[in-house]
């Protein structure tokens, strides 16, 4: 059942992004930034945690989960370390994704040549 939920949730987010992209003639960069901000906002009152519980991987794959994890880490850091924890904890959960993207890109760009 969770697969159906994952399909619906991830699909709706991607379709919304596509409609906004077509209607307002934005670049894909604007869309990803917009969805990161939406994800960060939805985590303020722990709404996104309910989506994750409902859709599982379907809620973790879209870029909204990136914003969700940033806010989640910042709030968890605040609970552990007080005010400075907002800065300490921000990258706790997302560092895996960012580091993986940077490291893979670096080594693969040494191996492969650009194609057009």
């Amino acid at each position: 059942m969770i697969y159906l939920h994952a399909f619906i949730f991830a699909g709706i987010i991607c379709a919304l992004g596509q409609i906004i992209l077509d209607k307002f003639k934005l670049t894909p960069g604007h869309i990803t930034v917009l969805f990161v901000i939406i994800g960060a906002f939805l985590d303020v009152f722990s709404i996104y945690d309910k989506f994750v519980a409902w859709a599982g991987g379907g809620a973790l794959v879209p870029i909204t989960s990136f914003g969700h994890m940033l806010t989640h880490g910042a709030i968890a850091g605040y609970e552990d370390n007080g005010f400075m924890g907002l800065l300490i904890g921000t990258f706790d959960l997302t560092s895996a994704g960012i580091c993986a993207a940077i490291i893979f890109s670096f080594y693969l760009s040494l191996i492969f040549k650009p194609r057009d």
Partner: peptide
């Protein structure tokens, strides 16, 4: 002229499949 509905449906399907792949990998 890009068809908004077709594009949205394609994005829905592919995005949904990505969600399923994510859940499957977990």
């Amino acid at each position: 002229k890009e068809n908004i509905l077709v594009n949205a449906l394609t994005a829905f399907t592919i995005g949904g499949i990505m969600g399923i792949i994510g859940q499957g990998l977990i």
